Simulated assay, not measured.
Amino acid sequence: MSANNNPNESHEVTQSLADSVSSLAFSPKANFLIATSWDNQVRCWEISKNGITKTALNTTLKASISHDHPVLCSAWKDDGTAVFSGGCDKQVKMWPLLSGGQPMTVAMHDGPIKDIAWIPEMNLLATGSWDKTVKYWDTRQANPVHTQQLPDRCYAMSVKHHLMVVGTADRNLIVFNLKNPQTEYKRIVSPLKYQTRCVAAFPDQQGFLVGSIEGRVGVHHLDNAQQSNNFSFKCHRQNDDFYSVNSLNFHPVHHTIASAGSDGAFNFWDKDSRQRLKAMKRCSQPIPCAAFNNDGSIYAYAVCYDWNKGAENHNPATAKNYIYLHLTQDDEVKGRPKPRTTGRR
């Protein structure tokens, strides 16, 4: 029932999707939303706020392109002119969306591409793959600028220049200082006991978040003097069941955190005061991915099967695929004062 899929009464993006959504990404310049999907498609919607009421949104499908195989990841160029998408066809396409140009292949790997990031400070595209490499690309050249070997398959990647964090299989977390991208800055084993699902670099580049399949988030600082401030917290759990943390996003203004998980819930957190700001009602299907728009006023999230229970538990006849837009409220995303009892300065 649609009511169960949308218990938070978010705005539904209009467009039927043939398969699960794998990534969401907002333009850094305007309210254009990209969604990639297991149906091999990359779609772009323009989102506008209704001038009469601030609580209404209009969504218009602007364009779409196809890959040869499922698409797993997406990113925007910093000027908002182009979109990058990669996945199981082992290539990244650059789509000059706003100019109406045709997509062109700008990166290749020997295995599926799991995550990508545009690094405007370097004018390079970083791509992480299951072939156990990260590659840096100047999109005007056919060959990578540099290929960095990883200890295992790339599962997640996050960049806040100069910091890049790559989570791989076997719970490795590889940290790079992009001032010297050809050398690992630090390698640690995840503070969480189970497989890494997502990572998010702090906006101030002083550390990162890591989410696991066991419904837990780790907050990790890079400075050895800050290690006492490292902690982890439980989320996306219900009774004795725990669910994967699929998405971690920092609010672009307040730098609070949104987490989304396989339990069908999304929550807002303040890592500095160590508080949950808001718990949203659970949807009837998992949330595999989510994203804030450029000013943090809209939080987009997908509601669809995320394959966490295998193909045998997927029923295409009953499982629908949705993208919803939540208009954030100040009390949900603004940080709160640190509790006085912590003794922290």
Rank of each mutant, 00 (worst) to 15 (best):
M1E: 08
N4W: 11
N8V: 14
E9Q: 14
T14Y: 06
L17Y: 15
D19H: 06
S20E: 12
V21Q: 06
V21E: 04
S23Y: 14
A25Y: 00
A25E: 03
S27T: 07
P28L: 08
K29M: 11
I34D: 00
A35D: 02
T36W: 11
D39Q: 09
N40M: 01
N40L: 04
Q41D: 14
R43D: 03
C44D: 03
S48D: 10
S48P: 01
K49M: 06
G51C: 05
I52Q: 08
K54R: 14
A56D: 12
N58C: 08
T60C: 07
L61Q: 13
K62H: 08
A63D: 13
I65G: 00
H67S: 09
V71S: 11
L72D: 10
C73L: 13
W76F: 04
K77H: 10
T81G: 04
F84A: 06
F84Q: 03
G86Y: 04
G87V: 01
V92Y: 02
K93T: 08
L98H: 04
L98V: 11
M104P: 00
A107D: 02
K114Q: 12
D115Y: 06
P120H: 10
N123I: 08
N123E: 12
N123C: 10
L125D: 08
V134W: 05
V134I: 15
T139V: 15
T139F: 01
Q141F: 03
C154F: 04
A156T: 14
V159C: 08
K160Y: 03
H161F: 15
H162D: 01
L163A: 10
G167T: 00
T168H: 01
A169M: 04
A169L: 12
R171P: 07
F176K: 05
P181A: 05
E184D: 01
K186R: 12
R187W: 03
I188L: 15
I188V: 15
S190M: 07
L192M: 06
T196V: 15
C198R: 04
Q205I: 05
G207R: 03
S212V: 02
S212D: 13
I213D: 10
E214D: 14
G218D: 09
A225E: 13
Q227V: 04
Q227R: 12
S228C: 05
N229V: 00
F231A: 02
K234R: 12
K234W: 11
C235Y: 02
H236C: 08
N239R: 13
N239D: 15
N239V: 11
Y243V: 06
S247Y: 01
L248I: 12
N249S: 15
H255R: 01
H255I: 05
T256C: 09
I257V: 14
S259K: 07
F268N: 04
W269K: 03
K271I: 14
S273R: 03
S273K: 00
R276D: 01
R276T: 12
R276Y: 12
K278S: 10
A279T: 02
M280W: 01
P288S: 09
P288G: 01
P288M: 08
A302D: 06
D306R: 11
W307F: 15
N308A: 12
A311Y: 15
N315C: 09
A317N: 13
N321A: 00
Y322R: 07
I323R: 06
I323C: 00
T328V: 04
Q329T: 02
Q329F: 04
Q329Y: 04
D330P: 07
V333Y: 13
R336M: 13
R340I: 08
G343L: 09
G343V: 07
G343Q: 09
